[in-house]
């Protein structure tokens, strides 16, 4: 499912918001979520999961083409931990796919 398919699905499941509003709302939510992580804060969505930042210490990497050593600064990378409900649902439907 892509972002536009998600917007489509949400628009069809309710009648109070126009397609344009749903589109705006989805983009606005994702914006705020990205901004939150960019500012170093975590996100906690009950039932879905949480996003946190994992620290990566500085290291010396190599340019794979030339083999030259390059110093890479420390950084943070976003990490998603699925919540209990999502974890259980995804695992419950697993058996159906295998059969």
């Amino acid at each position: 499912m892509t972002k536009s398919e998600l917007i489509e699905a949400l628009a069809q499941k309710q009648s109070q918001l126009a397609y344009k509003d749903v589109e705006l709302a989805v983009k606005s939510m994702l914006d705020l979520m990205a901004l939150t992580l960019a500012s170093g804060e975590r996100i906690e969505i009950r039932g879905f999961g949480s996003f946190s930042l994992h620290y990566r210490p500085p290291r010396t990497g190599r340019n794979p083409k030339t083999g030259d050593a390059v110093t890479l600064a420390s950084k943070y990378v976003p990490h998603f931990k699925p919540g209990k409900e999502l974890r259980e649902r995804v695992n419950k439907t697993r058996s159906k796919e295998i059969l």
Partner: peptide, 14 residues
């Protein structure tokens, strides 16, 4: 809207 957004994500992955 927020509820249905995350429900949709859960359903899709589910």
């Amino acid at each position: 809207f927020i509820e249905s957004f995350f429900n949709e994500l859960n359903n899709t992955l589910g």
